[in-house]
Amino acid sequence: MDRLKGIEVVIVVAEEGGFAPAAKRLGMSPPAVTRTVLALEEHLGIRLFRRTTRVVRLTESGERYIAGGRRVLDELAEAEASASGAHKGLKGQVAVTAPGMFGRLFVAPIALDFLALHPDISLRTLFVDRITDLVEEGLDVAVRIGHLPDSSLVATQVGLMRQVVCASPSYLASHGVPRAPNDLEGMEGIDFSFSAPQRHWAFRSSGRSRAVRPRSRLSVNSAEVAVAAAVAGRGVARLLAYQVEAEVRAGRLEIVLADFEPPPLPVHVLHVEGRHAAARVRAFVGMMVERLRSEDWLS
């Protein structure tokens, strides 16, 4: 069995959503496509697709298989182009993920500039406020804010990000400006977390860490909603500096308790290397690192 051909067939079936349209695109007969998929499933010992009379969908194992399969085909194409002397520019797809607001504000402009420089590159973005698995979700590059667990990913630190407490001028005028973390206990806090409300806010005082729990009537899982709520005077918010930078500059929010902020969080650009990263991924990572390191809000 030609396993490279099998990878190609599985990818096309997944993209077309069926065996018949995949056969048409591949120039094969539908029975030949079916036999190829069945032979590959038998070889792997897994089911790649869920089949019904109406739809064909990838299983979880199938999702992982085509994510790796795409990388194999891309690396093979790049190796062949280099060996034949036809490698005149970067080709293929780069898939990047980042936190939602960060991705829209900072990664997207870099990605668009990268596309303009490399006309044979395609790019896929996934901007979500959750930790993604690069391998399982078929991603090449990620931006992460926070301390990293040990992993096989290659990480390049591009800066540090402050965690700030802020509120609107009107809220501070009516409730007072907090002078110490304990003052927050009498104020309304806007809880914001990627996965669950952060009931306690950590601060640093006299070299030691301390936690404070503001009262809260509002918990959100979107940075934009937390920022909007703070601007509307709904309470005090704990956010990352880049998320409130525009509102602070415009005077709609004020940062408080700056002297008690915890240590800033590291910001990394990560990528899947394997034996060696594709040239297009290395080029994209290089551009991301250079551009992010030039941002004023990163220390």
Rank of each mutant, 00 (worst) to 15 (best):
E80W: 08
P109V: 10
G103F: 03
H271E: 03
P266D: 08
L40F: 12
R47A: 10
S82Q: 14
N221P: 00
E42S: 11
V135I: 12
Q198M: 05
E80Q: 15
L240A: 05
A241E: 14
A22H: 05
A116E: 13
D133G: 11
R50C: 02
P149T: 09
T156G: 00
P262Y: 05
E42K: 11
V33P: 06
F19E: 01
V135A: 09
R54V: 14
F284S: 09
S216Y: 00
H271Q: 05
A173Q: 15
R238Y: 12
L44S: 13
H276W: 11
H147Q: 07
R71L: 14
F106I: 04
G89V: 03
D296F: 02
D296G: 05
M28E: 01
P30T: 02
T97F: 03
R47W: 07
A277M: 10
V55P: 02
L270C: 05
V96D: 10
A116W: 00
L123E: 09
L160E: 05
A223N: 00
M287G: 01
E261C: 02
A83R: 10
G89C: 11
Y242P: 01
H175Q: 15
S193T: 12
I110S: 02
A98S: 08
D183L: 01
K5Q: 12
Q163K: 12
A232D: 13
A83L: 14
M287C: 04
D259Q: 15
L184Q: 06
R238A: 14
V227P: 10
D183W: 09
A226N: 02
E8P: 00
L172G: 03
G85N: 01
V55L: 01
A108K: 14
L160H: 02
T53K: 09
A250L: 13
T52C: 10
V285C: 01
C166G: 09
V244K: 06
D133L: 12
L105E: 13
M187P: 03
V225L: 10
D133I: 09
S206E: 15
N221K: 06
L184D: 08
K24Y: 07
V37Q: 03
A23D: 04
I46D: 06
E60W: 00
T97S: 12
H276K: 14
E247M: 07
G62W: 02
D2N: 15
F284C: 13
R293W: 03
A258H: 08
V128G: 05
G274P: 06
A250R: 15
R124M: 07
R210C: 09
P149Y: 11
G68P: 01
V220N: 07
K5F: 04
A202G: 07
V56E: 10
M187Y: 04
A67E: 01
H175D: 02
H118M: 01
S195M: 14
R104I: 14
V12R: 13
A111P: 03
G176L: 03
P262T: 06
G85T: 11
A67I: 00
G18A: 03
A211M: 09
A228I: 03
A180N: 04
S193K: 05
V289Q: 07
A167E: 04
M287E: 12
A77N: 11
